[in-house]
């Protein structure tokens, strides 16, 4: 049994998801000067609301800051075979976004360069990013 809740995503997360629909990744400038991706609704230091008008676009390439291997894919995961999760700091951002990374396990390293692979159809959801993939060297 499931409860079919409808959620309002709010002015900042909503704008981030709309950005994904348009194949852009947005971040928020927080009170410490960091560009936070994904952007939160509230500033982690000052607790002040983040203004959606201050969102900035960041790069679609970035650097792996940590990764792990998921040996047991679960229902709802981006892949249905064992795959890697990665925290990726996109160019222009100061924080990392978590998503799947489509690369052979023995090629993955912290610090490797990756880029967003967009889904065939984007609808304003986190899965508009299908995964990250290595930047061809």
């Amino acid at each position: 049994m499931e409860f079919a809740y409808t959620r309002s995503t709010g002015p900042v997360v909503g704008a981030f998801l709309t950005g994904l629909r348009d194949r852009k990744v947005l971040g928020a400038k927080d009170s410490t000067g960091r560009t936070v991706v994904p952007p939160p609704e509230y500033d982690a230091s000052s607790a002040a609301p983040i203004e959606a008008s201050t969102l900035v676009e960041v790069g679609q390439e970035g650097t792996v800051t940590s990764w792990s291997w998921n040996p047991v894919p679960r229902l709802g995961n981006p892949f249905d075979v064992p795959f890697a999760w990665a925290l990726v700091r996109l160019d222009g951002a100061d924080t990392s976004l978590l998503h799947a990374l489509d690369a052979p396990r023995d090629t993955i390293t912290t610090g490797m360069r990756v880029k967003v692979r967009w889904a065939a159809e984007t609808v304003g959801f986190i899965n508009d990013i299908a995964c990250f993939e290595p930047v061809a060297s």
């Binding site: 998921n70 229902l75 925290l87 976004l97 959801f125």
Partner: peptide, 29 residues
């Protein structure tokens, strides 16, 4: 997998990262 339900529900939860995979990211860091 059940523990995925405690995650932020808009940009993290829909990917269903399990608790062991997340812990492994922390261990790597």
């Amino acid at each position: 997998r059940v523990l995925s339900l405690q995650l932020e529900p808009y940009v993290l939860g829909p990917l269903w990262p399990d608790a062991v995979s997340l812990a492994a990211l922390q261990a790597r860091a």
